[in-house]
């Protein structure tokens, strides 16, 4: 069974390595990932948000709704942990 799993994992890795052959190289300034929206963020950050740190200005200003969704995820996870652990303690005491 372990051999089957190992062959499966190696197949997936082989396909992914085949996929990297067409990718732009590491550190290529003309790669598609750094051509589309991020030049506007880099150029306008001091004019529109007055923050020198671009990561902060994108995190809290341009993509603020994204960060709000992230806080919702953390709240849900904390709530789930409290309900799971505390609920079972109370049930054990009643038994």
């Amino acid at each position: 069974m372990k051999i089957v799993n190992l062959i499966l994992v190696l197949c997936i890795g082989g396909f992914l390595i085949y996929g990297t052959l067409d990718m732009p190289g590491w550190g290529d300034p003309d790669s598609p990932a750094s051509k589309h929206v991020s030049p506007r963020y880099i150029q306008k950050t001091i004019e529109e948000t007055a923050t020198p740190n671009m990561v902060t200005s994108i995190l809290a200003d341009y993509r603020g709704y994204d960060t709000m969704g992230e806080t919702t995820v953390i709240f849900t996870a904390g709530m789930a942990c409290i309900l799971l652990l505390h609920g079972s303690i109370r049930k054990n005491r009643n038994d």
Binding site: V37, I58, L59, D66
Partner: peptide, 10 residues
């Protein structure tokens, strides 16, 4: 490029 940094912070 700062955009992937922000997304991966999340």
């Amino acid at each position: 490029n700062p955009l992937p940094h922000v997304l991966m912070l999340t």
